[in-house]
Nucleic acid binder design. Structure first.
Length: 630
RNA sequence: GGGGGUGUAGCUCAGUCGGUUAGAGCGCUGGCCUGUCACGCCAGAGGCCGCGGGUUCGAGUCCCGUCACUCCCGCCA
């Protein structure tokens, strides 16, 4: 069998695009087959309709599927724009050629458009009322046996999908995701521009910054022993842009962080819609960003409702009600403290805990519809699987609270808890106890699990919220010191006075996140534009002035020469696209992603380089002992 | 760095308590088939059971190690 390299070229994309997304024809009807016919096609595979019946056409594309009936043979021809059924019978001069083609070959064919017999219309295809009677076939590129099928949309191992990404991207769902990503990008640029923002470019090769994630480093040839760093975000550049007197900056900015991946966190690189504005308060930023995101989501949500106002939830309240600073508001469960019902009660485990530790609390997680022993036991087993001692519960049936907790707690307190959460027959409530700081993340997981298990989450919605009033500092248990909890450049609420007079751990920052359906889309802040406040903030976090000068010199200098109050935010593009494509994994919306180990299996990155390249960079390798084999 | 899961045909998977020649679907090769669109029917090819070691009369199956992929924790201002 003839074997050729896989065709990655898409002639269609080289054609000038008319205004409509799917051009019906590339050429005028006057260009019928003949000497003037285009070499590859007169129409795309998504173009032809009943009105074209009788026309002589030329199509090119991939063979999606062949159905060979012996005396009659169908080829589904696919390109970027659609699928057209082509048919050949022994009367056709192309019959022998048609019998030879296989899936994913690239062919060009000429033929006549004809109406399908009415009872064989295919409503699933835009072109389903017509077919092409094939008169000539030219194989433009044959395909070897496929390492993964293109037809159909089942699950395949990711390493194979990534190694043969060009095949994976031919699949309908991936192709649609990537096109939608492009449309989302275009819409974002339009919306930002219409809102008066202008797009800037900032350096990719820049300096390492001491805070935050691990940097990707690029060795300098001209300066032995020195390194550039790829930007973790254009944070300082966008602030400097404001100090330079521009206003309303945006950029769809590549960001690079050398940290381990997650399903919702690409290894290595990702994109942010980076935004910064001058002379603004927190409310001004919200008022600028909210309509862009709402409009964007409404445009691509396919009818799913989108929050009209994004509720603003203080950080502390989010932790208390949802156990997390990225709550999924589609989940109606709100937790609340129930310590008072347990204090001094007959349920000794919690009563003793509360007695011994003044900081201890008990929280309740109401579970509407979870009032069966089977469900409660299942949740308890789940909690143990998560490394917890268990998950206490009361479930309500036959007019009373049931379960071991209720038995020891007594009917009075049990009824008080039922009333507090407004629970009824058939409902349950789960309990977590200890120091909130320690158990809150688990409580959040339990809330999520209960919501999912009981089907309380309406997946056909986009629920946004702002999380506001993040703490400025937090206690770093490992280093035993106060550390910036988010961005060191955020303005503390209350300014210098707050830093001078308050417990640092009590100081809040003008720091905020946008959360949608439990996904943290972005974080931002009103920046600290006052050098004396910044010096004090760094001092509290244990950095002396030299560090500030060394590492943030450019920015600190700029602050001394007239810096406007400014602030911004940076929504994650990949996560937005993921939500709007209904995907659970970022790799489904990135065209050529790396795997979880930050390798590009298709291109072979990271790869080895020649000794000469290393010499030029003044680099000698000091590999770990068990020498890596490649 | 740590924990969980997975690894058997090109692809998706099954494989019982450790027991004969390791199976199915899709794909591939050949044959039949004139209205299919997940076409249908018949036949065939295709296996280092991830890799290495061990236990055993006997290992896809049990044990140890290792590699790869993936999910999670740490990490991600």
């Amino acid at each position: 069998m003839p074997v050729a390299g896989a065709a990655s070229r898409r002639p269609g994309l080289d054609f000038p695009q008319p205004l409509c997304a799917s051009p019906r024809r590339f050429q005028d009807a006057s260009h019928e087959p003949g000497p003037d016919m285009h070499a590859y096609r007169s129409h795309t595979c998504g173009a032809l309709r009943l009105a074209d019946v009788g026309r002589s056409v030329r199509l090119s594309g991939w063979v999606r599927r062949v159905r060979d009936h012996g005396g009659l043979l169908f080829i589904d021809l696919r390109d970027h724009y659609g699928i057209t059924q082509c048919v050949a019978d022994p009367d056709s001069p192309a019959f022998a050629a048609a019998e030879a083609v296989r899936a994913e070959w690239v062919i060009r064919l000429d033929g006549q458009v004809r109406e399908r017999p009415a009872d064989t219309y295919n409503a699933n295809l835009d072109t389903g009322e017509i077919e092409i009677f094939v008169e000539e076939i030219e194989v433009l590129s044959a395909a070897a046996e496929l390492p993964l099928p293109v037809f159909g949309e089942p699950e395949y191992p990711e390493d194979i999908r990534l190694r043969y990404r060009f095949l994976d991207l031919r699949r309908e769902r991936m192709h649609r995701n990537i096109v939608r990503r492009s449309e989302i990008m275009t819409s974002i640029r339009r919306r930002m521009t219409e809102a008066g923002f202008i797009e800037f470019q900032t350096p990719i090769l820049t300096a390492s910054s001491p805070e935050g994630a691990r940097d990707y480093l690029v060795p300098s040839r001209l300066h032995p022993g020195r390194f550039y760093a790829l930007p973790q975000a254009p944070q300082q550049f966008k602030q400097l842009t404001m100090m330079a007197g521009f206003d309303r900056y945006f950029q769809i900015a590549p960001c690079f962080r050398d940290e381990d991946a997650r399903a919702d966190r690409s290894p290595g690189e990702f994109y942010q819609l980076d935004i910064e504005m001058s002379f603004v308060t927190q409310d001004d930023v919200f008022d600028a960003v909210e309509p862009v995101l709402r409009g964007l989501f409404e445009e691509f949500a396919e009818g799913k409702p989108v929050s009209q106002r994004f509720p603003r939830i203080p950080y502390a309240e989010a932790i208390g009600k949802y156990g997390t600073d990225k709550p999924d508001l589609r989940n109606p469960i709100e937790m609340a403290p129930v310590s008072e019902h347990f204090r001094g009660s007959g349920f000794k485990v919690f009563a003793t805990l509360l007695d011994k530790d003044a900081q201890a609390e008990v929280w309740g997680i109401p579970a509407k519809g979870g009032g069966t022993r089977a469900f409660c036991d299942r949740m308890n087993a789940w909690a143990q699987g998560e490394g917890q001692p268990g998950l206490g519960y009361i479930f309500f049936r036959e007019g009373e609270g049931a379960g071991p907790v209720a038995k020891n707690l007594g009917p009075g307190a049990t009824e008080a808890i039922r009333a507090q959460f407004n629970l009824a027959e058939g409902d349950a409530v789960f309990f977590v106890a200890g120091r909130p700081k320690v158990f809150a993340p688990f409580a959040g997981q339990a809330r999520k699990k209960v919501g999912e298990e009981l089907g309380l989450i309406d997946t056909e919605r986009f629920d946004f919220c702002w999380i506001v009033d993040f703490p400025m500092f937090e206690w770093d248990e490992e280093e035993k010191k106060v550390e910036f909890s988010h961005n060191p450049f955020s303005m503390p609420q209350g300014g210098l006075e707050a830093l001078e007079t308050m417990d640092p751990l009590e100081v809040k920052a003008f720091q905020y996140d946008i959360v949608c359906n439990g996904v943290e889309l972005s974080s931002g802040a009103i920046r600290n534009h006052r050098p004396e406040i910044m010096r004090r903030a760094f001092e509290i976090a244990g950095y002396d002035e030299r560090v500030l000068e060394d590492k943030f010199g450019g920015m600190v200098r700029a602050l001394q020469y007239g810096a406007p109050p400014h602030g911004g935010i940076a929504p994650g593009i990949d996560r937005i696209v993921m939500l709007l494509c209904g995907e659970e994994n970022l790799r489904e919306v990135v065209m050529f992603p790396m795997n979880q180990q930050a390798q590009d299996l298709m291109m072979g990155a990271p790869g080895e380089v020649s000794p000469r390249q290393l010499r030029e960079l003044h680099i000698r390798l000091a590999l770990p002992e068990p020498q890596k084999q490649v």
